[in-house]
């Protein structure tokens, strides 16, 4: 039985973990702004909204080996919303998959860091994406293969909320439920914005949780910027057997940079010099 002291220690450990993850997330946000500013183009809004989720995955959960990116038993991660790859590249560099100097080459000719993720060019990338809606289906394939091979790894898929506009996403949702793929954990970066405006204006997707429930999924709803909530949700997902889990993570597009927050205009453009400096001030302040 755990004593009160033990509990206190566990809580303190957890607080330490959360604090350190918060620091990592902030660091990755700085890298994202740096990269997109240097590149002169890119997608800051959706990169920043996913920063905390990516941080928890890469620095707390994923069973991976940066020195051996092709390790067969690794957990798989697919960024279905491929345009948010700057945050992924920042995390991979921080993990040591490649030298950080590459971050400055984002979107440039001959770079290993393409405008959208490319598994053949970037160490640590398990699947090429960019055309929206396709990541979950690929995750279904990975999860089916894991079941066939008796492997225990998980396939994590980060999905953008506007990807729910794509019919193929729902085809994949049906399939994951059919095959009872409890080794799939989908996480929705629910920032409510897409290129042309709010989801509600472009194509309403609510009631989102009910839709996933109706498709046969275990649904968890969290704040996607609260590290402890992300951790708890993924732990719950890993302990859920017999059906796939989707974590609907409420997020803020552009989170961390005041003038970018909740603005669809920051879906896909680079900051100016003044904007860059302000963003850096806010993130490093």
């Amino acid at each position: 039985m755990k004593t009160n002291n033990d509990k206190k220690e566990i809580q303190e450990d957890k607080k330490e973990i959360i604090d350190s993850l918060k620091k990592v997330a902030n660091k990755l946000r700085i890298d994202v702004i740096d990269m997109i500013y240097n590149a002169g183009s890119g997608h800051p809004g959706g990169s920043l909204s996913a920063a905390d989720i990516i941080t928890v995955l890469y620095f707390h959960f994923l069973n991976i080996d940066p020195k051996n990116p092709q390790w067969a038993d690794r957990d798989r991660f697919i960024m279905s919303k491929g345009h948010a790859c700057p945050i992924w590249y920042a995390a991979l560099a921080e993990k040591g998959y490649f030298d950080k100097s590459h971050l400055g080459t984002l979107r440039k000719i001959n770079s290993i860091l393409q405008g959208h993720p490319d598994m053949k060019k970037t160490p640590g990338i398990d699947m090429t994406t960019g055309s929206l809606g396709n990541g979950l289906g690929v995750g279904v394939g990975m999860a089916l293969a894991a079941k066939l091979k008796g492997k225990l790894y998980y396939s994590y898929i980060l999905i953008g909320c506007a990807e729910h506009n794509e019919g193929v996403l729902w085809e994949a949702a049906l399939a994951a439920a059919k095959f009872k793929l409890d080794n799939i954990i989908a996480i929705i970066d629910y920032n409510k914005l897409q290129l042309d405006g709010y989801n509600d204006e472009v194509m309403p997707i609510e009631p989102l949780a009910n839709k996933w429930i109706a498709f046969g999924w275990n649904v968890l709803q969290i704040n996607g910027h609260e590290i402890d909530q992300i951790i708890n949700a993924i732990e719950t997902a890993k302990n859920t057997k017999g059906l796939p889990t989707v974590i609907i993570a409420d997020t803020i597009k552009g989170k961390g940079v005041s003038y970018m927050e909740d603005k669809c205009s920051w879906h896909g453009k680079a900051p100016s010099k003044e904007e860059y400096e302000q963003a850096m001030k806010e993130l490093t302040g």
Partner: peptide, 15 residues
Amino acid sequence: AESNMMSVAAGLATM
């Protein structure tokens, strides 16, 4: 669901 079949096939091939 032909589109998704191709995605799933891709995922299986990565393994």
